[in-house]
């Protein structure tokens, strides 16, 4: 009997402590983040959606070497290279990526492609709202990766309108490339070596 009633007192005390704890939580500030309205900032080195980069003159940095595809453990990058021509100069190197696709549903965001790239053409950005309604839309094409990350609606869904115009290929080349380019052009015995406006990269 006495054993029973010490139990009553102990239980009452312990329950009281518990009630006080939960009441403190009740009066305290909640920690919920209202997601579509508030997006938790990611760390600077967070690895999110890839970006392809261009030189300051608009030429693509990617030369279609496929080293990223080789390094990719998830095998989600597909690169088909093509030769640059004078009429169609896309990248600063000899070749350019005619097709550059990343299958985002397979990508594990390890960043090996970034490390493998000799020209810093591909980096992993900070965008992480990659959900979509369709598997086909998870394959990001070159134009999508070159463009700024698309804006999202309230539910984080992509509004796919990658309408960034193709770069003006006649624009100037970076200083460090001019020699290469002019040599290439000479080798192709181009008759018209238009003087290019110098627009250095600054560094």
């Amino acid at each position: 009997m006495s054993n029973n009633f010490t139990g009553v007192f102990r239980g009452t005390k312990n329950t009281g402590v518990g009630l006080a704890t939960t009441l403190r939580a009740f009066l305290g500030r909640n920690i919920t983040e209202q997601y579509p309205e508030y997006k938790h900032p990611v760390m600077p080195r967070f690895r999110g959606r890839h970006k392809l980069h261009r030189h300051a003159n608009g030429l693509e940095k990617c030369v279609g070497c496929s080293l990223c595809a080789a390094a990719c453990p998830a095998d989600c990058i597909r690169v088909v290279a093509a030769e640059n021509t004078d009429d169609n100069r896309v990248s600063a190197g000899e070749r350019f990526a005619q097709v550059y696709e990343i299958n985002m549903s397979r990508c594990i965001f390890c960043g090996y492609c970034e490390m493998a790239c000799p020209f810093d053409a591909i980096t992993l950005g900070n965008d992480w709202e990659l959900a979509d309604l369709n598997r086909d839309q998870m394959i990001y094409t070159k134009n999508m990766l070159l463009a700024d990350p698309p804006t999202k609606d309230n539910y984080g869904m992509n509004r796919r309108a990658v309408t960034r115009p193709e770069p003006d290929l006649d624009s100037s080349l970076p200083v460090w490339l001019e020699e290469t380019v002019s040599r290439e052009r000479a080798e192709r015995s181009s008759t018209d070596l238009a003087p290019t406006k110098r627009q250095g990269r600054g560094k």
Binding site: T22, A25, F26, N30, I31
Partner: peptide, 8 residues
């Protein structure tokens, strides 16, 4: 219940 658990 949510308020008791720091939720909304």
């Amino acid at each position: 219940l949510s308020f008791f658990q720091y939720r909304l």
